[in-house]
């Protein structure tokens, strides 16, 4: 009896734990609905280029965005809508980029998931996997040079991205420099259509942590509680000067690689296995079971999020597209050094 009481968190901890969970759930929900809206716009032919959504990865993603603070660095990947929102991106910013509004951060020069604000520590990914890791390292190194302590850099990758040389070089670099890097791997079982068995041969990717001399964590990426706890600890460890943290989550991508892909190659048995659980559904049920929210409240939150998304999309759709005739076709910051080819 005494033991049970001792292991039960104090009241304050329960409420902060509950608040974090509720907040995370609502970001997940908003991310899911925004993703679904982009997917539907894609099917309606309203989006130029591809749409890449994070269905099934929201719990992991939101845990990253929510564990970071203002002043930290975040380099998300293609399935991190929930984490982006939790880190501070607005729905409008995402909508503007997907819809090519000239008022968006990328002004039509880059689109969809390739968006960010580098000066605010929010990096716009390039398509080459693993390539953002050393950029985060460099930002952290610069902060060390400038004597800025206590900030963390987090970046995300799928299990497929761990096969790149860039991943190896950058994780090793972070380890050598003992940087406060949190590298989150979503092992979502498929890199486009290639199963994990064709991607790596080790028992678990987290075993690689020892090889790099960094701390490793593994978790069930379908469980929001685990995501918040483990990712939160990894971020705290990095902030405490314990060097790079490698976090590996098991989950299943509940969508195609992009919306052009029906993911027909995913085995039904895998979808029905524990790894195939929908983290949003699991989190919603947990909220109800804990009496932290009523079912009606979840519905109300969904409606609220839908409303928010619709408004942002409608606004972005009315905004001007980039004008090729007034565009400044100059790639250099030093305009006087650019050559004119017309």
């Amino acid at each position: 009896m005494i033991q049970m009481v001792a292991s039960r968190p104090a009241t304050g901890e329960v409420s902060s734990c509950r608040d974090a969970y509720l907040s995370a759930y609502r970001w997940m929900l908003l991310g899911r609905i925004l993703d679904e809206k982009f997917a539907s716009l894609y099917r309606a032919g309203k989006i130029h280029g591809g749409v890449f959504i994070g269905r099934g990865q929201e719990a992991l993603s939101v845990a990253i965005g929510q564990s970071l603070r203002k002043g930290d660095i975040f380099a998300p990947l293609i399935r991190d809508q929930a984490g982006r929102l939790a880190f501070g991106e607005s729905v409008l910013e995402a909508a503007r980029t997907y819809l090519g509004s000239v008022l968006g951060p990328m002004r039509g020069r880059d689109g969809n998931v390739h968006r960010g604000r580098p000066k605010e520590g929010y990096l716009p990914m390039i398509s080459h996997l693993g390539a953002m890791i050393p950029v985060v390292n460099g930002m952290l190194l610069a902060r060390r040079f400038k004597g800025i302590a206590g900030t963390v850099g987090a970046t995300c990758l799928g299990e497929g991205g761990t096969s790149t040389g860039a991943f190896h070089e950058a994780l090793n670099q972070a380890a050598v420099e003992k940087l406060p890097l949190v590298l989150i791997i979503a092992n979502n079982q498929f890199a486009y259509s290639t199963p994990s068995s064709r991607q790596f041969a080790c028992r678990s990717l987290v075993d690689r942590a020892a090889g790099y001399g960094v701390e490793g964590h593994s978790l069930d990426g379908t469980d929001l509680t685990a995501c918040l706890k483990v990712v939160g600890e990894a971020v705290a460890n990095a902030r405490d000067g314990r060097g790079p943290q490698l976090v590996v989550a098991r989950l299943l991508r509940l969508c195609g690689h992009g919306e052009h892909d029906d993911a027909g190659y995913v085995d039904t048995k895998l979808k029905q296995s524990p790894v195939g659980r929908d983290c949003l559904k699991v989190a919603g049920e947990y909220l109800v079971r804990q009496n932290w929210a009523e079912r009606e409240t979840l519905v109300a939150w969904r409606n609220e999020a839908t409303q928010k998304v619709e408004e942002a999309i409608a606004k972005a759709q009315r905004e001007p597209a980039p004008d090729p005739y007034t565009e400044n076709w100059c790639a250099l910051a030093s305009k006087h050094l650019s050559e004119v080819y017309e």
Binding site: V135, F145, K146, E169, A170, Q173
Partner: peptide, 28 residues
């Protein structure tokens, strides 16, 4: 001291880190 740094044999990571440092205002 501290401003001329040995890198691992990792050209991709070397350039990547330089880019990150430049974003933060350094001149690597």
């Amino acid at each position: 001291p501290g401003r001329v740094i040995d890198a691992p044999i990792s050209e991709d990571a070397m350039v990547g880190a330089a880019i990150g440092a430049a974003i933060e205002g350094m001149r690597p």
